[in-house]
Design a protein around this nucleic acid. Sequence first.
DNA 1: GCTTTGCATAACCATTGGGTTATGTTTTAA
DNA 2: TTAAAACATAACCCAATGGTTATGCAAAGC
Lengths: 117, 117
Amino acid sequence: MQSPGNLDDVFAALADSTRRGMLERLSRGPANISTLAQGYEMSQPAISKHMRVLEKAGLIHREKHGREVRVSVNTQTVEQARDWIAYYTRFWKQQFDAVEHYLDHHHVKNSSTEEQP
Amino acid sequence: MQSPGNLDDVFAALADSTRRGMLERLSRGPANISTLAQGYEMSQPAISKHMRVLEKAGLIHREKHGREVRVSVNTQTVEQARDWIAYYTRFWKQQFDAVEHYLDHHHVKNSSTEEQP
DNA sequence: GCTTTGCATAACCATTGGGTTATGTTTTAA
DNA sequence: TTAAAACATAACCCAATGGTTATGCAAAGC
């Protein structure tokens, strides 16, 4: 049973283009591991390791069907990561807009890194 | 000039609670590095390294003011990461909902990992 | 002027991460 | 029943990460 995924593991799992590619592939529906491995020039154990990382992060769910493993995305964990960013983005943009507003009202655009002599 | 940040670097930067803590702190407004370091029991060079990671990822912007460095969040990069997740979340949830719908119509809930004998 | 403050940088160390080859196990196909 | 397919696991290698101490350096304070 994969944990809901702490953010350290979740973001670390997303920090690899191979794993992101697999998740993108999974947006077209669940797939076997060998299917997910298509197009990646790396050994099968390497793929296996990536799956472990994604699973430990709680980003995917595995289902054994005979000798194959069907993988699907755990939307809860994915939304958890998105929500962390989305929550703070609100405040970050807010202050960003405030600076824009300030610059706009003082007609000093393009001065972000300038030093006044 | 920091790059717009490729997703590898961005997510890797987010995969550390110290750095996420600093970004959270920055949601209350820009701050000096020494201010950001408050509450973390680690050496100053360690903090410096974290700042470099955040900057290389394009997540923050530095502004020298005398001997101090004012740090603020680069909202573009942050939104870029959020958008990647948000975009695929749509499809992931879609198929997730489809499965839910299927299970609902066949009255076979709680059967995700069961094997029928 | 001299000292302290706020950083950066270098050199080092232990751990982790992403890859490999080799091997094993279970299920399916011939 | 024997072979092949679809995985997992172990042992290893090398580069990257996150921390340290030591040092340097420019700006501020006294």
